[in-house]
Amino acid sequence: MKRLLFLLPLFAFVVLAGYLALGLTKDPHVLPSVLIDQEVPPFDLPPIKGREAGFRRDDLLGQVSLVNIFGSWCVACRIEHPFLMRIKEERRVPLHGIDWREETLEAGPAWLARFGDPYTLIGDDPRSVAAIAFGVTGAPETFVVDKRGFIRYKHIGPLTPEVWEKTIGPMIEELRRQ
């Protein structure tokens, strides 16, 4: 018994060290979203220059869709962009965009004109109104929204074919069946 008592500090150390080691392996920028399984909050964004339609919450009702946060200033958005184009070409799922924090009215449309426009609807969000409503911390972020307008999944960082295969693709199939 006494001997076990001597081991107590060592035991406590191992447990603490384990916790801290686990903490080191996590990316502090990946925050758990509190919005999973929550209804998308109301937002109503104006269109970007050159488009007729803006983007608002009620556009999400009726079908499973993706909402992608992007900006012409966002380097990582260019990484995922070819894959977003593929989603559009293969008509996998409606993909809507929130053009976040453009400094000029031309910046977003120019970027899309140069690299291609994968979005069904786009809303202009220079002051982060919709971005904050979605709890966005950086771009790019992509949300899976179900037919009832509930957020079901949040992906932080560039969308890749791997993420699609493993998570988002199967999830969309599942949500469509519901």
Binding site: L31, P32, S33, V34, L35, P41, I132, A133, F134, G135, T137
Partner: peptide, 8 residues
């Protein structure tokens, strides 16, 4: 703000 971003 908490409802959007959590207690964090």
């Amino acid at each position: 703000v908490v409802s959007r971003y959590g207690d964090f």
